[in-house]
Simulated scan of single mutants.
Amino acid sequence: MAEDINTKLARYKTAPFDSRFPNQNQTRNCWQNYLDFHRCQKALAAKGAEPGPCQWYYRVYKSLCPTSWVTTWDEARAEGTFPGKI
């Protein structure tokens, strides 16, 4: 399975189609992948595992989300005022 993820990451160009978000507006897709990345990191850190699989979510949200949003969300997480459940 790890080889499969590494293969996908190597061939990664931009965010693939996600049937949960079929519309042109990808705001929710951006938000969900940001949350999934941080949830994945938190879960794998609790298990003491490598956070390699989380890089998929990272690349997707980096390609979809405006940098200003990510910066704002990172600052809110650092301050403890982030509205999402991670």
Rank of each mutant, 00 (worst) to 15 (best):
M1N: 15
M1V: 15
M1R: 15
A2N: 14
A2I: 13
I5H: 15
I5P: 13
I5K: 15
N6E: 13
N6Y: 13
T7E: 13
T7C: 06
T7G: 08
L9Y: 05
L9G: 02
R11T: 05
Y12D: 05
K13Y: 05
K13S: 08
K13W: 02
T14E: 08
T14Y: 04
T14G: 07
A15E: 00
A15T: 00
P16F: 01
P16W: 01
P16M: 03
F17I: 07
D18V: 00
D18W: 00
D18R: 00
R20L: 14
F21A: 02
F21Q: 00
P22I: 03
N23L: 08
N23T: 05
Q24D: 10
Q24K: 11
N25G: 11
N25Q: 08
Q26H: 00
T27Q: 09
T27Y: 09
T27I: 04
R28M: 14
N29V: 01
C30I: 02
W31V: 09
W31S: 08
Q32M: 06
Q32K: 01
N33P: 00
Y34W: 12
Y34N: 03
L35H: 11
L35C: 13
L35V: 10
D36R: 11
F37Y: 15
Q41G: 02
Q41F: 11
Q41N: 09
K42Y: 07
A43C: 07
A46G: 07
K47Y: 02
K47N: 03
G48R: 11
G48F: 10
A49W: 15
P51D: 04
P51H: 09
G52R: 14
G52C: 02
P53I: 05
P53C: 01
P53K: 08
C54F: 07
C54Q: 10
Q55W: 01
W56F: 06
W56S: 01
Y58M: 10
R59E: 08
V60E: 01
V60S: 01
V60Y: 01
Y61C: 05
Y61I: 00
K62W: 06
L64I: 08
L64V: 12
L64K: 03
L64F: 03
C65V: 03
P66W: 04
P66D: 13
P66A: 07
P66R: 08
T67W: 06
S68M: 12
S68Y: 14
W69G: 05
W69F: 15
W69N: 15
V70A: 07
V70S: 12
V70R: 01
T71C: 06
T71G: 09
T71I: 11
W73Y: 09
D74Y: 11
E75S: 00
E75P: 00
R77H: 13
A78C: 06
E79P: 06
G80S: 08
G80W: 13
G80E: 12
T81V: 08
T81R: 14
F82E: 14
F82R: 12
P83H: 09
P83T: 03
P83M: 03
G84E: 13
G84V: 10
G84I: 02
K85M: 15
